[in-house]
Design a protein around this nucleic acid. Structure first.
Lengths: 336, 336
DNA sequence: CTGTTAGCGCCTTCAT
DNA sequence: ATGAAGGCGCTAACAG
C-alpha cells in the first residue's frame, strides 16, 4: 500500500503539500498540484481513513443501529439514513441489535470505538436505560430514531404514533365498531406504548370502555399469538388492530385459524405494513410511517448537532398517513 | 477520553504492561494486573479501536456489502454473517449498494480504507468487473456471496441455483404443464442467469422447446411487468415461475390483473419467497435459499483465508430446498 | 516479569 | 507557496 511519503517523494514535495492537495486545505500552485496528482495516480495511493480519523479525531462516518434491518419499516429508515449520509459524504456503519440489549451495547461500543462522528439509534425493546444514560456522557452525539424516550436529553425523530392511532380508532368506530381486539405487543417499546395510548385516547373520544376491548400486551410473541385466538374468536370483536408488522402476521394468522374472514366478518388494520402490500387480499388498511423521511431527518438532526453541540435537544415527530383500504371497508356490524 | 497513559500512570506501570493486560498477550503478575484493572475501571478507559487497528494493521472487523439488506434473502444472509462474525469476536460493518455499481465501489473503498480484515460481497447487478478485478490486488481477502463469478479468483458461496431450478421444472412438468411463463429478470445477475440455465436444463430434460415458453428477461422491472401481462394472459401458459421475490411480486400482480387465479387457472412457483409466507393465499411453492447458512459459510471461508492467504480459492454451493405448496398442486391442465 | 522506544499514516502548527 | 516536525493512541520488538 502506497503511503503519502511515497507520493511526496515521487512528486518531489513534502508530505504536507500532498496532504493539502488531498484535502484542498490550503493553496498550492497548480504546477505542483499536478505533479502530486500524477504521483497519486501513479502510485495508486489511497488515503488511510483510519490514520486520518485518528489524527483528526473524527471520521466522517456515522453509525446506525437498528433491531432488525430486514423489517420493512427499519429497512426504509436505513435507506433514508444512507441516502442522506451519502449526500453529505458520510459513510454509514450499520449494525443490527436483533432486539437484544446486550448486542445493542456491544454494537454501540464497537461503533463508538471506531470513532463514528455520531450515532443514530433505534433502541432494542429492552434497551438498558443505563446504556442510554452512559451514552449521554460520550463525546459523540446520538439521535434516537423511531423509539423515543422523552426523559432522555437526545435529539429524537419518530412518528406521531399516538395521534395516528387515535385517528385510526376514530375511523373504525365511525364504521360502527364498538368492540375491538388490539394486538399491542411489547409496551416497553416506546413506539408500541404510544400506539396503545392513542388507542385509549380513541376509546375515550368515542366514549367506549377499555374494559370492553381485548387489549393484548406482552413481550412474548408466542404468548400473544395464543391469547389472540380466543380474542378474535369472540363474536363481539368486529375489528382487529395490530400495532406492528410482526403482530399483523400474528393477527392474520389467528383470524385464519378461527375461520373469520376479513373484512366479511371483521375489519382489520395494521401499522407499518408489509413489503409488496399490493399482493395482499384483501388490501389492508395501514398506518404508514414516513420511514425513509425519518431516516433523512435523523441525519439532519445529527449534522446540525455536530455543527452546534450545545443547542438543546430537539424532538421531531413526522406525520403518519392513514391508508384506508378494503380491510376496513364495507362492513357494518350488527347493532349491539 | 482516558488514554493508556492515564491508566499506566494511575497504576504505576508502563503503557506496555497496560497493553499486555488488555490483550492477554504476555504474562503479568496478578498483583500488577489487578492494579491495572482497577485503574482501567477508575478512569473509564476504553481501547481506541482505530489506533489499535492502525498499529496492528488489522481491525478484527469484516465488511459486508449487499444490494438491499431489506430484501428477505439478503436480510437472512446478513444475519448469518453477523452471527458467525460475533461468534469469532469480529465486528461487522454493513453497507448497501442499492444495486448500483458506483455506490458499490464507494462502499468497497470505504470499508477497505477502514481496514476491515476482509470483505464479503454480494455484488450489485451491474458490478463493474474491473472493480472486482482491482479487488484481487488488495491485501484484504474477499468472499463473493450469492452472486458468483466463476472466472474470478475469490472464495465464493452461493446456492445450487441451476440444479434447484431444474428440479422445480421437473416437478412442474410432472404435474402435466407444457407451457410456462418464466420471469427471469436481469440475467447480468449471476444468480438469475443460473436459474435461467436451470430452466433450460429442465426443458431439455422434458423434451420441451424453449421457443414454446414465454421467457422474460431484462434489466427493467417495469418492462418485465408490461411484458408479463400478455404472457400470463396467454391461455397456453399454465404455469408461472418467478426467479426472485421482486419478480414474484410482478408475476402475482400480472396474474391478478389478467384475472387468472392461482392455482385454479395457473400454477405458480417462486424463488426466495416473502417474509411471513404463511400469510399468502394460496401458499406458494418456493425454492428457498439457505440464506442464513450462506452467511455463516461466507464468514468461515473468510476466516480460513485469513489464516491461510495462499490456498487456492474455494467455491461452496449450498443446497436449496424445494418447498411444495398449494400454488402448484391440484391442477391438471387440459391436454394439449 | 516489566519498561523503553520506535513507529503505524496522517494532519497541522510553526517556520520560512 | 512550501517544509519540518510533533504527536494522535497504541503495539511489539528489544532490553533488562
Amino acid at each position: 500500500m502506497a503511503t503519502m511519503i511515497d507520493v511526496a517523494r515521487l512528486a518531489g514535495v513534502s508530505t504536507s503539500t500532498v496532504s493539502h492537495v488531498l484535502n484542498g486545505t490550503r493553496k498550492v500552485e497548480s504546477a505542483t498540484r499536478r505533479r502530486v496528482e500524477a504521483a497519486i495516480e501513479q502510485t495508486g495511493y489511497r488515503q488511510d481513513t483510519l490514520a486520518r480519523a485518528m489524527r483528526r479525531s473524527r471520521s466522517d462516518s456515522i453509525g446506525l443501529i437498528v433491531s432488525d434491518a430486514g423489517e420493512p419499516a427499519f429497512a426504509d429508515m436505513a435507506h433514508g439514513v444512507e441516502h442522506a449520509a451519502a449526500e453529505r459524504g458520510l459513510t454509514l456503519l450499520l449494525a443490527n441489535s436483533s432486539e437484544d440489549a446486550e448486542r445493542e451495547g456491544l454494537a454501540i461500543h464497537a461503533l463508538m470505538n471506531r470513532r463514528v462522528d455520531g450515532l443514530i439509534l433505534a433502541t432494542a425493546a429492552t434497551s438498558l436505560v443505563d446504556v442510554l444514560r452512559s451514552l449521554r456522557d460520550e463525546r459523540a452525539p446520538v439521535v434516537l430514531l423511531d423509539r423515543l424516550y422523552h426523559d432522555l436529553p437526545f435529539d429524537q425523530v419518530g412518528a406521531d404514533n399516538r395521534d395516528s392511532m387515535r385517528s385510526l380508532v376514530k375511523h373504525i368506530v365511525g364504521q360502527g365498531h364498538r368492540q375491538m381486539t388490539i394486538l399491542a405487543g411489547d409496551t416497553r417499546v416506546p413506539t408500541l406504548e404510544e400506539r396503545l395510548e392513542g388507542f385509549l385516547d380513541g376509546l375515550r373520544d368515542a366514549g367506549l370502555a377499555p374494559s370492553a376491548q381485548h387489549i393484548l400486551t406482552g413481550q412474548d410473541e408466542a404468548e400473544i399469538a395464543a391469547e389472540a385466538l380466543p380474542a378474535v374468536a369472540d363474536r363481539a370483536t368486529t375489528a382487529v388492530i395490530c400495532c406492528s408488522t410482526p403482530l399483523a402476521a400474528v393477527g392474520l394468522g389467528a383470524l385464519e385459524q378461527v375461520g373469520r374472514a376479513v373484512p366479511g366478518d371483521v375489519a382489520f388494520a395494521t401499522f407499518d405494513g408489509f413489503r409488496y402490500p399490493e399482493l395482499f387480499r384483501p388490501r389492508l388498511t395501514t398506518v404508514r410511517q414516513p420511514a425513509f423521511e425519518m431516516g433523512v431527518s435523523a441525519v439532519q438532526l445529527l449534522v446540525s448537532r455536530l455543527a452546534d453541540p450545545d443547542s438543546s435537544p430537539r424532538t421531531v415527530r413526522l406525520h403518519q398517513t392513514l391508508e384506508l383500504r378494503e380491510s376496513t371497508e364495507g362492513f357494518a356490524p350488527r347493532p349491539a
